[in-house]
């Protein structure tokens, strides 16, 4: 008994002493945190990078885009994954935290509109109709498919979408409702996109939206609706989400860029600069491997130039920009 007590006391003191000494690990580290949408890409890059540089410890967290920026702007991480551009409030937080950053687009993700395979009436949908479905004022008014397009049956309309804290929701509402973070509240939401897949797959009257990768893995359970934005320059008529249409910008307005934000202060550490460079070089084939869409060829050299030139600040000062492709933005800036 005496021994047990003394062992416990000694061990406690050891832990306390260890805590007090607070010695920093000598290994080179790259700390990444942020969006769970971008996570699979960062994981793949970290895995491959780790094979070439086993002595560098890369860690990746999934605090969400917003949660990631909180840590990033407090100077706690080197790189922040983001599924939408940095918001003005986060820009302010970074400024007061003394964190300058380089914004690097790394991939595209498409947001798909899907219905149940048993749905035989809807073959495509327009942006206006999506707005009719999802706008805040539609709550309690638009409750049947026939309320959206005359000719569609008088069946109840059940909606599925990601949680309101996700970057996907933010982008969708900006693109469709034209007001970020604003939609009707009476839809089934889940942080886990697999739950949304199950929901739409199990309800003939359902319509849902989520990331392209979740459709690509469940094509047998879902029916994809091509989206018509009514603009001839993005391809006439409805365009179906696919690798090509997301990449060349014809699947509008629901393809969005994914980013990493790199702290300028961290770029002084060779391992961080090297990891970011590796991301834009060797990361390209990994993007499609994990289910996302690579940027157009021309975009990566421009992004790399941004990194090498340590060009700080965001290309998106007014929140998510819809309908502009990344290579256009980068090229516009390079001029």
């Amino acid at each position: 008994m005496n021994r047990i007590v003394s062992v416990i006391i000694v061990l406690t003191l050891t832990v306390a002493a260890g805590a007090a000494s607070c010695r920093k690990s000598s290994a080179a580290t790259v700390k990444v945190d942020g969006s769970s949408t971008v996570y699979p890409i960062t994981e793949a890059v970290a895995e491959e990078y780790g094979k070439t540089k086993p002595d560098v410890q890369v860690t990746v967290g999934i605090s969400g885009t917003g949660g990631g920026f909180k840590k990033f702007c407090a100077g706690e991480t080197d790189i922040s994954d983001a599924s939408r551009p940095i918001k003005p409030s986060e820009v302010d937080a970074c400024t007061s935290g003394g964190v300058d950053y380089v914004e690097l687009p790394v991939a595209y993700d498409g947001i798909v509109i899907v219905v149940n395979p048993g749905n035989d009436w809807a073959q495509s949908i327009t942006v206006e109709e999506l707005k009719t479905m999802w706008a805040p004022e539609s709550q309690g008014v638009v409750t049947q498919w026939s309320d959206v397009r005359p000719g569609w049956p008088e069946r109840p309309l059940t909606l599925f979408g990601p949680g309101v804290d996700s970057g996907t929701y933010d982008y969708f509402t900006e693109a469709i409702v034209k007001k970020e973070h604003s939609s009707r509240g009476d839809f089934t939401s889940s942080e886990d996109d697999n739950t949304l897949v199950q929901g739409v797959a199990g309800d003939v009257n359902a319509l849902g939206f989520f990331g392209f990768a979740y459709y690509a893995e469940n094509k047998d359970k879902l029916k994809l609706l091509p989206v018509d934005d009514g603009k001839a320059e993005n391809g006439d008529g409805p365009v179906a989400a696919a690798l090509e249409s997301i990449r060349d910008g014809t699947y509008q307005p629901l393809s969005r860029p994914l980013f990493i934000y790199v702290a300028v202060r961290s770029l002084d550490r060779p391992e961080v600069a090297e990891f970011a460079r590796y991301f834009l070089h060797e990361g390209i084939p990994l993007v499609s491997e994990v289910g996302y869409v690579p940027l157009p060829e021309a975009a990566y050299p421009l992004a790399l130039a941004r990194l090498e030139g340590r060009k700080t600040g965001s290309m998106f000062t007014g929140g998510s920009q819809v309908g502009v492709t990344i290579d256009q933005l980068l090229a516009r800036e390079a001029e």
Binding site: G18, K24, Y39, E43, V58, V60, G61
Partner: peptide, 14 residues
């Protein structure tokens, strides 16, 4: 702030 991708084992309490 526990992480998701960690390719090494903890070697100290830090």
């Amino acid at each position: 702030g526990a992480l998701t991708y960690v390719a090494f084992l903890p070697d100290s309490v830090h």
